[in-house]
Design a protein around this nucleic acid. Sequence first.
DNA 1: CGGGTTGTCTACCAGGTGGTAGAGAGCGCA
DNA 2: TGCGCTCTCTACCACCTGGTAGACAACCCG
Lengths: 203, 203
Amino acid sequence: MPRTGGEQRRTTIVEEAIRAFGREGYQGASLDRISQAVGIRKQTLLYYFPTKDDLLEACLAAAGQRVAEEIATALEAPAEPGARAERVIRAVYALAEEWPEFPMFIREAGRLGPNAFDRFAGALDPLRDRAIEFLQAGMDAGQIRKQDPALLLFTLYTAVIGSLTEASVLSAFVGADDARTSLRRREDEVVAFVRAALRPPDA
Amino acid sequence: MPRTGGEQRRTTIVEEAIRAFGREGYQGASLDRISQAVGIRKQTLLYYFPTKDDLLEACLAAAGQRVAEEIATALEAPAEPGARAERVIRAVYALAEEWPEFPMFIREAGRLGPNAFDRFAGALDPLRDRAIEFLQAGMDAGQIRKQDPALLLFTLYTAVIGSLTEASVLSAFVGADDARTSLRRREDEVVAFVRAALRPPDA
DNA sequence: CGGGTTGTCTACCAGGTGGTAGAGAGCGCA
DNA sequence: TGCGCTCTCTACCACCTGGTAGACAACCCG
């Protein structure tokens, strides 16, 4: 009954939907449960987003925009390649700490096929181009191990997202050891891993 | 009508179910479509696996066993740490080439929570222990960058599985460039990445 | 005050889901 | 031959899914 009104409601729905899609997957999440989490009826949700796919679209766009903002902020200060990569990773981890389902949702976006992922990655296109140029420059200057910069970026992406989303695997690997499975430990680990992987052979 | 009989049918169903679960996710895959792919009615499938969860269980066990075999074979010959890691990665990639839905299914196992993943990883427990001992020994001998071996193994896992399963992401990063997105290219990339990440700082 | 727009609801539906009940066909074995 | 077991099927069900239709209420603006 209470009328919250337009834009606020939309963003609340999108946030809750990202949580649900991240936790249960796109197919697994139901409009009924999402709307219940928001505190409205399913038909109210369908008033804002006429189909489930429309809702997904809005989530992808919102997530892409949010991630792009965080990364852009992290890249503001200039730095040496390794430090720059580290700053981006830590920004993504900070986002994941504040919003645990976020990385899972991004992974789900990848799972849903290129179309879905493009809708997410649209906002990140300029950042990707910057990253590739930057990696290439680092390689030319001998600061980064030489190889295809786009593929390197891809592998970096998978390592970071994987370390954020494969919590079940982690607990199977090291046991339910809180001190070792904590986000902070994983963050430091993946930062060290990436720094080592970027290092040129003679450094 | 044709009676194929017991064990053969079971394995056929499990193979097809792994494909379906990998492609569409556990929730997204339906017993109806799986049985149709096998060429039987849903109720015949339910005769072999009384519930969908029973079917999942069988898939997890079969997948774990298969992966354990491949890795064990790849580890038969002794080798220097980097080469050993490379051999394991190439073995997993060979399996993925022969059976594309396989890595996706493994990732889905991780997504379904620790319980599900443990059922998959049970067969891999001894290998994990071997891997950790091996990494530790390599660190002690100065052949591998020093850090928590269990966490390192986890990060290696995420990098390899990620590079195998995030195909949509890859095409968004480098475009639909077949030559660059090919399995072979990704394989070489991730091998180089891992070798670099394992290298000790002074090598 | 009054009419239109915006927002939220109840009621309902067709189709797909995992799962049950039980009939019958083919087989091995006495 | 005939009994019993294994296997596969048809028929069915309760439930949940995404989505439609339309009533009704609150707000803004003249």
